[in-house]
Computed example of a mutant assay.
Amino acid sequence: MTTSDTAQKRLGTLDDAITAIRSSILEGEFAPHQRLVEVDLCEQFGVSRAVVRNALLKLTSEGLVEHLPNRGARVRAISLDEAIEIVEARAALEALCARKAAERMTPEAREYLTELRAAIVDALESGDLAEYSMLHQRLDHYIRDLSAHHTSTQILERLQAQGARHQFRLSFRPGRAARSGPEHLEIIDALLAEDADAVEEATISHLKGVITAMRES
C-alpha cells in the first residue's frame, strides 16, 4: 500500500467517525451534557483513540461538543435562546442563498424542484411527517448547492448542525407541518418563477415563523 493510499484510508476513517458521532448527537442517542468517553467511542465505532480525539476536536469546532478542564468532552447543550439566535443568523444567509439560486435557475433545476414540490405535497396530504422532514431538508440543501455561494453554505451547515435538535423536535410538533408546508411551497414557486425578491422574502418569512414556533414551545 502506498503512502497516499494509507493517508486516504486514514482520512476516510476520521470522516466516518465524525459523521457517526455527529449523527448520534443530532438524533439524540447522546444527550446534552452527556460525557463522551474516548475509550467507549473507540469501542462503539471501531476506530482508534487518535481518530476519536480528532473527531471530537472537529465536532468542538462545529459547536456540538465542548471540552471541560480535567473532565474531557461532553455534548454541548444548546439553549432555546441560542437556538433562536442561530435561526436569526440563518435567515440572512439562507435568504442570500435563495436569491442566488433564483438567479442561477436551469432547466435541470426547474425539473428537480417541480418533482420535489410534488413529493412535498404528497407527504403533506398523507401526513407522513418523517418523509416531509426529509424532503424539506433536501430542499434546503439543494437551494444552497444551486446558489453556489460556498461561504454561506459552510456557515449554514455549521449553524444548522448546532440547532438541529430544536429543529427536529419542532418539525414533529402537531400542526407544524400544516404551517410550514405552504411556506416551503411558496419558496419553491418563487424559485420556479425565478423571482429573486419573492424567494428572499418567502425564505425570511418562513424562518420568522420558525422562530415564533420555537418561542411558543
Rank of each mutant, 00 (worst) to 15 (best):
L26T: 10
E108F: 03
I211T: 11
T106F: 05
V37W: 07
R158P: 04
H33A: 15
D140F: 05
E183Y: 06
E216D: 08
G46L: 08
L192C: 00
A91Q: 09
D122L: 05
D197N: 08
F45M: 00
V210N: 06
A202S: 14
L68P: 03
M105L: 08
A178I: 09
F168Y: 10
I188G: 03
M214F: 09
L185K: 06
L68Q: 08
Q137W: 05
T151P: 03
E27I: 09
L192K: 00
R215F: 09
S61M: 13
A196M: 06
R90M: 08
A92W: 13
Q44H: 08
A109K: 06
E43N: 10
A118I: 14
E200K: 00
R71G: 01
V75E: 05
S61G: 04
I143M: 07
R176K: 14
R138V: 15
A83I: 02
A50S: 07
H141S: 08
I78L: 15
V37P: 00
Y132M: 08
E38S: 10
A178S: 10
R104H: 09
A198V: 02
G12L: 10
R215A: 00
L59C: 12
L207I: 05
R53W: 01
V51W: 04
P107D: 13
I78E: 14
H184V: 07
R215D: 03
L124Q: 15
Y132V: 01
A130N: 14
L159F: 02
A92C: 15
D145E: 04
H166S: 12
L185I: 05
L129F: 09
S48G: 11
E27T: 15
N54C: 05
R71C: 06
P174K: 10
S48N: 08
A77F: 11
S126W: 01
T114E: 12
F172C: 00
E94I: 01
G28Q: 02
A55G: 13
K100N: 14
A193G: 04
A7D: 11
